[in-house]
């Protein structure tokens, strides 16, 4: 009987796995071999050039600028988003939730429903330096001196885009953490209370360790997300990637090399480098955030 069951399961999986192999796995694998060629993407011919693309990449200042921006983002985005989401969800759960917590939960989640392109276009209007919401708001509350060109100025551009990521990301993790927190048995808190723990202590000693699995997943997601950033940079930034590479990220630089400079071999090499960085960082994230699993 058993082998019949496997045959059934296998036949169900055949189509999705096949599609996945053809459209996802095989392009990934091909990227590795394309990275070793000088393929320009207009004809089928290309020449094997060994590791030349990687040598060039190593000496390419724009790549290093892009990498630096990605590293900055992957440290700051998880830090900011996770702290804010933890704060909000702790507030929502504190003693059964602050008044109106159910409404807040929904409101926080709003940005997650919007597609990333819509978010980008929306924030274009917020950052618009002359009639935009942000500068208009600053003016209205008497902080006109703080007005900036935002996306047009190399000093504020990357920070502005990061703010959009935070705005768009917090809601989802609030929902994630809130759900994890509500799964913690109430009697644990009552016990802590009897032992004399204040709210601060019960958050650090009780809540956080018990939802650590969710936090760990959140950090891994955010790190991977911070290594991408393509869509928002492409829609929002000057250039895109500017002004003068101020918002350049690896994924955009890969795209530019492929579709603007017509250098698919080099772009594939950038992709392979990005893959390696991604892999290392994900492993590192899990290693660094590993803790004893608490059973309850």
């Amino acid at each position: 009987m058993h082998h019949g069951k496997y045959r059934f399961v296998f036949s169900l999986l055949l189509v999705p796995v096949g599609l996945y192999a053809v459209f996802v796995i095989s392009p990934y694998l091909q990227a590795f071999s394309i990275a070793l060629t000088d393929w320009q993407g207009m004809t089928a011919d290309s020449h094997f050039i060994g590791f030349d693309n990687f040598v060039k990449l190593f000496h390419d200042p724009v790549f290093w600028t892009a990498l630096r921006h990605n590293v900055f983002l992957l440290v700051s985005i998880p830090l900011v988003i996770v702290s804010l989401s933890l704060f909000f969800s702790a507030m929502l759960n504190y003693q059964g939730g602050v008044p109106g917590s159910r409404i807040y939960k929904v409101v926080y989640f709003f940005p997650s429903v919007l597609s990333i392109a819509v978010v980008g276009v929306l924030w274009q209007f917020v950052f618009e330096p002359r009639n935009g919401l942000l500068n208009g708001f600053l003016q209205a509350v008497g902080l006109g001196d703080l007005k900036q060109i935002w996306l047009g100025d190399g000093k504020t551009a990357l920070g502005s885009i990061m703010a959009v990521v935070v705005w768009g990301g917090v809601g989802f993790y609030v929902v994630l953490f809130t759900a994890a927190m509500s799964a913690i048995p109430r009697d644990l808190y009552e016990a802590a209370l009897l032992d004399g723990a204040g709210p601060w202590q019960s958050f650090w000693r009780l809540t956080l360790p018990l939802i650590w699995g969710s936090v760990q997943v959140a950090i891994a997601y955010l790190v991977i997300g911070a290594l991408d950033m393509f869509a928002l940079v492409q829609v929002l930034s000057v250039g895109p990637g500017g002004p003068d590479d101020a918002t350049q990220v690896i994924s955009l630089y890969m795209y530019t090399n492929a579709f603007t400079y017509g250098n698919f071999g080099y772009a594939a090499a950038i992709g392979v480098a990005l893959f390696a960085i991604n892999l290392i960082l994900t492993l590192l994230t899990f290693r660094l955030t590993r803790r004893e699993r608490v059973e309850y």
Binding site: G152, D153, G154, V238, G239, G242, P243, D244, D245, T256, T260, Y261, G262
Partner: peptide, 19 residues
């Protein structure tokens, strides 16, 4: 030269931002 064109745009942005 598409890349040179792209780089000239970047340099222009830097010039106009007085960087």
């Amino acid at each position: 030269y598409k890349k040179l064109l792209d780089n000239s745009d970047k340099a222009m942005a830097a010039l106009m931002n007085r960087e």
